[in-house]
Design a protein around this nucleic acid. Structure first.
Length: 206
DNA sequence: GAATAGATTGTCT
DNA sequence: GACAATCTATTCT
């Protein structure tokens, strides 16, 4: 990939994030996530997202109005990062949506590597052409160097930001992954992905 | 390819 | 003390 591409990666404006959480989850598919870390630049095209709509949504960490230190970012301004640690070893990255009275967020579940692929491979200890590089929430965080240090940072300016990008295939939707405990809420079709994209995590029926 | 179990720790009850 | 918006290795078929 060329330096020319890197130069086209400018942050979207703050306004982009001011839309409903489900609309934002849809809009983010095809956009590019960029991280300018000390180790180097990585960028990936977002191909899979999920919307979490607390306090009503029982699948959300903010369910029932829960407002603990961990979920504080969900109660913050739209367009900031909500990063959490899960299963004792993985980080997951979310884009906060809604205003400060609405604890909403969009989980980014998979990206397609665009830039800094060698660095991603190094961080993941995998070959650069490996499909497992970024096809899952924990995997993409590891590959792109996203962890607690980026908790709450704005996503409309460096070092971590969302840039313009195009969808290359039809947008599909289905139930969210691994929230069976959420009852009826688990059935909502708030998972979105780009049809047929090989980087999507848990294989959907496209 | 599918199913299963084990890893490992921050967070909340 | 229980569990989690997951990943990996292993063991099947």
């Amino acid at each position: 990939m060329s330096g020319a591409l890197a130069e086209t990666l400018a942050p979207l404006s703050k306004d982009f994030f001011s839309q409903g959480v489900v609309a934002l989850a849809r809009a983010l598919v095809g956009k590019v996530l960029v991280h300018e870390s000390a180790a180097g630049l990585t960028a990936g095209r977002i191909v899979e997202t999920e919307a979490y709509r607390g306090p009503d949504d029982l699948g959300a960490h903010s369910a029932g109005g829960r407002r603990t230190p961990r979920v504080a970012a969900m109660w913050g301004e739209a367009g900031h990062a909500y990063v959490y640690f899960i299963y004792g070893m993985h980080w997951a990255f979310n884009v906060v949506a809604g205003d400060t009275s609405e604890p909403h967020a969009v989980l980014v579940r998979a990206v397609e590597p665009l830039l800094g692929i060698e660095l991603m491979a190094q961080r993941r200890k995998l070959p650069p052409n490996d499909r497992d590089l970024t096809n899952g929430p924990g995997k993409l965080c590891k590959a792109m160097g996203i962890d607690k240090a980026l908790y709450g940072v704005p996503l409309f300016e460096p070092p971590l930001f969302v840039a313009a990008g195009e969808r290359r295939a039809q947008l599909r939707s289905g139930p969210r992954i691994n929230i069976d405990y959420a009852g009826e809420w688990a059935k909502k079709p708030w998972r979105f992905w780009e049809r047929g994209n090989p980087w999507v995590s848990v294989k959907p029926r496209d």
